[in-house]
Every structure is written in C-alpha cells, then in structure tokens.
Amino acid sequence: MKALMKNLRGDRAIWGIVALLAIFSFLPVYSASTNLVYVKDSGTALGHLVKHGVLLFLGFMIIFAVHRIPAHYFKGLSLIGLPIILCLLGYTLTVETNIGGVSANRWITIPVVGIPFQTSTLASVVLMIWVARYLSKIRDRQVTFQESILPLWLPIALVVGLILPANFSTAAIVGALAFLLCFLGGYPLKYLTVMVVTGGILASMFLFVLFKAPEVLPDRAGTWKSRIETFLNPDEASADANRQVNYAKMAVAQGGIVGKGAGKSVMKNILSQSTSDFIFAIIIEEYGLIGGLGLLFFYLLLLFRIVVVANSAETIFTKLLVIGVGVPIVFQALINMAVVVQLFPTTGQPLPLISMGGTSIWMTCLAIGIVLSASNKKTEEPAAEIDDMNPLEVLSGQI
C-alpha cells in the first residue's frame, strides 16, 4: 500500500474524492441492478456488481496511467487525436444501433473484446484539449474571426455536427462547454457575441422545424420533441412520455429526509435506466435528502479542487486544459441531478463515477487523469509556454 501511495501523484484531495465516489457507487448500483435482473431478465445482481467493479478498476488504471503523462504532452496528442476522433464519429453514424426501437447510432464495438464504446464521450475530451491548445496559442496576440475559423470553429462544428444526429443532448452540452472554454480562454468577446446570436438563431430555426416538421430530421427527432414537450408541459404530456419522469419524482418524494435505507428502494423495479440515467433518484429514495445533498457536496468539492488546480497552474494551456476536461465532469453530474428533480429535460446523461456504463466511467477517468497530471508540478511544462510543438517531438519527450 505504501508503495502504491508513493506512485500516486497530483492533488491528493481529487484522488480521495474520486475514490469515495467510486466506492459509494457500489451501493446504488447493486440495489438498482435488480431492475436488470427481474424486469429485463439480464444476469444477476452480483454479476452486475462485479462488472461495475471491473469497469471501475480499469477506470482507475486509466487514471493512474494518464496522470503520469506530463500535462504539456496533451497539446501535441490533440493534434493526433482530433483527426482520429472525427473518423470514429463518422464511422459511428454508419453503425446501426437501437434504443427502444428508435435508431440511435452512438456506439461502435471494440474489436476482439467486443465491448461497446460511445465515441462521443471521447470526442468531448479530445475537443476540449484541442480548444485549450488553440486558445493558449492566441492568448497574447490579437486574432480575427476569419483566421480562427479553420483551427477553432471548424473542429467544434464538425464534432458537434457528427454527434448531433444520434445524441442531441451531448452535442448541445459539448458545444456549450466549448463556448464556455473560449470565453474563459480570452477569445474576443465581440466574436463570441456574434457566435452566440448566430447560434440562437440557428437553434430557433431547429426548434421550429422540430415541432412543425420533425419528419425531415433524424429518427431521434421524435424523442427530442417528446422530451421537450414533457418538460415544458408535463400535465399535457402523454402517460408514456411522462412515466419515467413521474417515477423519478415519486422516488425522490418517498426518500424524505433520511431515506428508506440501503437497498430498500421500491421505484428501482419500475424506473427505467435506474442504474444509469436515473440512479440519482434511487440514491435519494434510499438515502434521502441528506444522501442527495451529500453527493452534491462531493461533486462541488471536486469542482473546487479543479478550480484550485487550474488557478495554480503555471501555463495558460495547463489552466485551460484543467478547466476544459474537469468542469464537464461536474457539469454532467449537475445535469443528471437536475433531470431527476425535473429542473431540466431528460438528456440521457449518466452520473459520473456512480452510474453503470463502461464508456462513461472510462472517459471520466481519462479526464480525471489529465487533471491530476496537470496538478503534478513535476510534470508541468517548465518556464515559458511552447505554443507550437511537433506531435512527434511531443511523443518522444523532446521539448
């Protein structure tokens, strides 16, 4: 154990928070997995728990491996990663998968091992690193909108555009976080204002088409429309469209202040996605308001430590890197919680480090590993920041 602790670098508070969240996740996952066993007739509760443990173990291996990579190496790695992820996103759209009988081309299967992989989760991490790299390059000079189209806005548009047909919520979140990073990175405000106004106009046009002629949009458009209508007018929504939201609210209401106790949830057997998208509802039902607020506290504490790491970083790239890959973890958690208490439309976003799901766990761990790498002063880029690095030099360790 002592040897292991000596090899753990970076912010110890982040290590502790992540470990606590992962350990706690076994309780709601084991409890909610009865839905998979008795309702969906899929394996055993112990089997799902073991699977979750294996996924978390592999996730922590990812954290350990990534956190030992010097933070400035990711600048060059993004040059290699972006073209690869664009190809993967394009390929994913050609792979037919279904959710509840509705087309949702989100996954590809990893060869040999046969594990499904959601490419949009990796794309969001790679895109944030790419944006951080570009913003660090232009930090100390004036930039025009025209010269930033190809290196900045085109990659953002391509990634968001390739995610959009199968996963509207993820595309919207990735686009919003990219804009936020541009704002924090000092991109000219006048250009961002133009982009926001343009985005608002395009979004209005999209919503108009979605409600007036959804048949011209991808197959998932019907699901998007139903979720928005259910959120805006829950009383007028159909019973089928409103069922899961109502079940989630019932689970929250039954939880009270202290909850029913571990494993005593009733709604887990009828609430769809109780092990992933709606696992927070099960947590509140079993551990009450105290448990829900406690979990929220740890996510906010994680956000605080991410901000501390970013603030103490010595280079602009490292600061933006930490914000770009770290903040989305907490942002996703807040969205998941907001959906359960009906402050946000249903999005399908899992609860980081808590929900079941290999891709979500692994990509969250990848992002955490990057943050930990940046928090390790021994691996941070020394002295003046190098903006233009050859990726081959980066991979070989030549600075």
Results as ranks from 00 to 15, higher is better:
A281W: 00
I323S: 03
G357N: 07
L4C: 06
T230Y: 09
W153T: 04
L207K: 03
A3P: 01
Q332N: 07
S124V: 07
V209F: 01
C365T: 13
H72G: 01
D388S: 06
T34V: 12
S42A: 09
L189E: 13
M1T: 01
P83A: 00
L122S: 14
S360H: 14
F64C: 05
T34S: 14
G114F: 06
V174T: 15
L189W: 14
Y191V: 14
A19H: 04
T359V: 00
G256W: 07
L93M: 08
Y191A: 09
L395S: 04
D277N: 09
F26C: 09
I368F: 08
P165H: 02
I290R: 10
L122N: 11
I228S: 08
V131R: 00
A22M: 03
H48E: 12
I84S: 12
D240Y: 11
P165E: 11
T109Y: 10
K51M: 03
L293M: 10
T97C: 08
T92Q: 13
T121R: 00
L303H: 14
K2N: 14
E385S: 05
L392A: 11
A338H: 10
A383R: 12
I115C: 06
L36C: 11
F26Q: 09
S396M: 05
G291E: 01
Q244H: 09
T347S: 11
R141T: 10
S360D: 06
L301D: 06
V308I: 02
V95R: 04
L86R: 05
L82S: 07
L180K: 10
D219W: 01
P391F: 14
G292S: 12
M128E: 03
R106G: 05
A132F: 07
S120D: 05
N269T: 10
A241P: 05
W130L: 04
D41F: 15
S272M: 10
I115T: 07
H72Q: 08
W362L: 13
A65R: 08
F280G: 01
A203M: 14
V216L: 07
R68H: 09
M205Y: 13
L79M: 15
A104P: 01
S355H: 11
M61G: 15
P214S: 05
P151H: 04
F344P: 12
L49V: 14
E147N: 12
Y134H: 02
S396L: 13
G10M: 03
G256N: 11
K260M: 08
L162C: 11
C87W: 00
A262K: 01
V340K: 02
Q349K: 03
A213I: 07
W362K: 15
G199C: 03
I282Y: 11
I306Q: 09
V37I: 09
A374Y: 10
L289D: 02
D388I: 03
A239P: 04
G263S: 15
T193N: 10
L296Q: 01
L8S: 11
M389P: 03
F74P: 07
K212I: 06
A65G: 15
N242R: 08
P155Q: 08
V307E: 05
G76E: 06
F64N: 08
F145D: 01
V113R: 12
A166Y: 00
M356G: 04
A262Q: 02
L154W: 03
A383V: 04
L289W: 09
V245Q: 05
L164T: 09
